[in-house]
Nucleic acid binder design. Sequence first.
RNA 1: GCGCCUGUAGCUCAGAUGGAUAGAGCAUCCGCCUUCUAAGCGGACGGUCACUGGUUCGAAUCCAGUCAGGCGCGCCA
Length: 539
Amino acid sequence: AMVLAKQRKTNPRALAQEIIDALQLDGLATADIAGPGFINFRILPEAFAARATALLGDEKLGVPPVGEGKTVVVDFSAPNVAKPMHVGHIRSTIIGDSLCRIARFLSFKVIADNHIGDWGTQFGMIIHGWKNLLCEKALAADPISELVRVYRDVNAATKTDPTVLEVCKSELVKLQAGDPENLAIWQQCIDLSKAGLEKIYDSLDVKFDHWLGESYYNDRLAGLVDEFLAKGIARESNGAICIFSDGTKKPEDDPFMVHREEGWTDNPAIIRKADGGFLYATTDLATLQFRIDEWQADQVWYVVGVPQQLHFRQIFDAAARWGKTGDFKHVAFGSILGEDRKLMKTRSGDNVQLTDVLTEAVERAAKIIAEKNPDLQGSEAEEVARIVGIGAVKFAELSQNRLTDYVFAWDRMLALQGDTAPYIQFSSVRIRSIFRKLDAPFDATSCEILLNEEAEIHLARLHARFGELLPVVLEDFRPNLLANFLLELARAFHSFFEACPVLKSEEPLRSSRLALCELTGRILTTGLGLLGIRCPERM
RNA sequence: GCGCCUGUAGCUCAGAUGGAUAGAGCAUCCGCCUUCUAAGCGGACGGUCACUGGUUCGAAUCCAGUCAGGCGCGCCA
């Protein structure tokens, strides 16, 4: 009551008492005054019990359909073809997939689009290498590695021999002009790369609705530039076609202005090079147009690293001037740094590959399973190792704030102890174990939840929070809030598990506790599912 | 030069709209398996929230400045 008391120039504690006297809490809570004028509401256990009981019959677990009627396109992962996915790609892929799952659960119509880099200048080198350096055997064994090798060798050759660079450029020009041979090579590269990518996405349990890469928008780019010119949004400068500031914003808020030693100066987005080629910005604008016009997108979320922030500010600004309206968000994330605290560069080549991380994760999980639960054998043990290992990697990523940079470290990414997915999965396993011991089928919908022990009340309090939390997660695109909530719920369950016997308690307590277990299990598995993490039956 | 992100326990990190004694995990130490899976539970230890000012009854949180790290700023993506 302190803020209000100040406005009214009255005593805060007295005002708090007035407020309390006027309230009708109807057995929902008690209220009392504390400190300088806080009003503390204590929700009664009966109120939490009623809430939890109601949730037992709710498919959506109290989550409101805030996305009803809205279409959102989520642009994430977007690797370049003919290059392996390294650990730097993991954030976009995992965060983006999780946002898709959460948005769907909140009743958005979600379109997951993998905007792969399948039309870059790198194809000049790849095609030249394909024609001259390709080893068929190596290509058959591991296509992406061979493509990378070829690319690297050509790239190295261009450094020493300028004629190689010229040849590469002419291969690129031929490709862009529609030369059948080069197009065929290009198409093969795409197909081989996609097959490799699909394998990783399968193991990560990540799915896309579309794979509309850069090449898909090729034939729209020339028209787009013409339109920007005709509408006066872009103009020629030094031979290139550029979008400049429209002068409506203060320079410091204008993505088309930059400050250098000499003062504020133009910082245009280039949509056509002096040589006639198109760029990243051109493709992105064409892509945005397509998503709005063809897919009727109300929102577009770009799950792309923080270094591209300026690019997206320019794209969104240009789109607005172009008349493309919608709610566009750059869901930026911090960088994964190497041991030297420098950004992991794609071109440095010695980055840790994503497949190696995933393989190692599953192996470490398998080792712990063999140690902790030797009863698990064969294919079941392998399946559990995959669920636990991959889950741990995903959770390591999703449980932290997306904007913080971090130094890649195996042990941190692969931790299976502590605040990790396995901790949460284990609580779900304990719940399933209880239900396996049950002699008769249990129907929670006809149960009433009773709360007496502190551990029970704590559980029910968390149950009530799930539905409130999920919309907040999407407000700022912070799946880590969900991850942290699930840790809290799992922690609360483990405490409950130690303190409150379920099967050995007397009715009606037994049914109540079974219902608490069922509700907890449903929220845990649903919540982990929204992070793209599965729960095993046993572990 | 200007802009964006980050700075919290020995280490790795949480801390939504400003609220009361700043939280987890790892590590260290002490307890708990004849009871539903000990990948667990209970407890201890550990902090000038980078620094300096300001706004406020109240600041890790908002504002200004300083320092440190990362990133970005015309024809790559």
